[in-house]
């Protein structure tokens, strides 16, 4: 999952980016409204965390502009003002959720995860397929037999993206766009290696290769 974090505070921004990266997200950080609006329109983010008090262009304006151009990227608004007036305005502009500063990291991660699931039309709760459950807190896999199996950071990102987008053919480049951030080197050959390792852990039949098109994660089982 690739996120856009828009936060102008020079300390909080990078700190949050690190936290989110540790939670298994690819994160781009933007520090002003104009830059954020452009990035949100160009890059295929899965979610945006948007601070409202931004230099150059307010977060509310950025959000309203996206919605005006039919950009439906899920947005979690992050703000310090915290008045109900502002909350209502935020949702009116098209926000999907709202977190007041200061917040606990767990709360932010829980909300981001909930909004991601909601935006994909999935029920709340842990991601499950074929008896295999993805434990988001420990970034590990719980097998049908209840056995924990650890995942590397990239494996976790890949699997979560598959589980959030089941029964769709996903091209290698789309996979790379959503798993790596803007500055990463996106080598699609490396991707094949990671997918093969993932198959060994969850069973090879779950991720099918569609030649020339990409991969398909089936939620129904074969």
């Amino acid at each position: 999952m690739r996120l856009l974090l828009v936060e102008d505070d020079v300390t909080l921004g990078p700190q949050l980016r690190t936290t989110l990266q540790q939670a298994g997200y690819a994160v781009d950080l933007s520090v002003d409204g104009v830059d954020a609006e452009a990035l949100g329109d160009i890059e295929p983010y899965d979610l945006v965390i948007l601070d409202l008090g931004l230099p150059q262009r307010s977060g509310l304006e950025v959000l309203a502009n996206w919605r005006k151009r039919d950009n439906k990227v899920p947005v979690v608004v992050l703000t310090a003002r915290g008045s109900w007036q502002e909350k209502v305005e935020g949702f009116k502009a098209g926000a999907d959720d709202y977190i007041g500063k200061p917040f606990q990291v767990e709360e932010l991660l829980a909300r981001v995860s909930a909004v991601l699931k909601r935006s994909q039309g999935l029920a709340a709760g842990p991601l499950t397929a074929h008896g295999v459950t993805l434990d988001e807190a420990t970034q590990s896999l719980i097998g049908a037999d209840g056995r924990h199996e650890s995942l590397t950071a990239t494996e976790y990102r890949l699997l979560r993206y598959f589980m959030l987008n089941p029964d769709q053919v996903i091209s290698k480049s789309r996979l790379a766009e959503h798993v790596y951030d803007y500055d990463s080197d996106k080598d699609s050959n490396v991707m094949e290696v990671y997918i093969n390792r993932l198959r060994q852990k969850i069973g090879s039949e779950l991720i099918q290769t569609k030649r020339g098109q990409g991969y398909l994660f089936s939620s129904k089982g074969s």
Binding site: D9, L12, Q15, A80, G100, K101, P102, V105
Partner: peptide, 8 residues
Amino acid sequence: KTRLSILS
């Protein structure tokens, strides 16, 4: 609150 966020 932004500073408080950093602290937390």
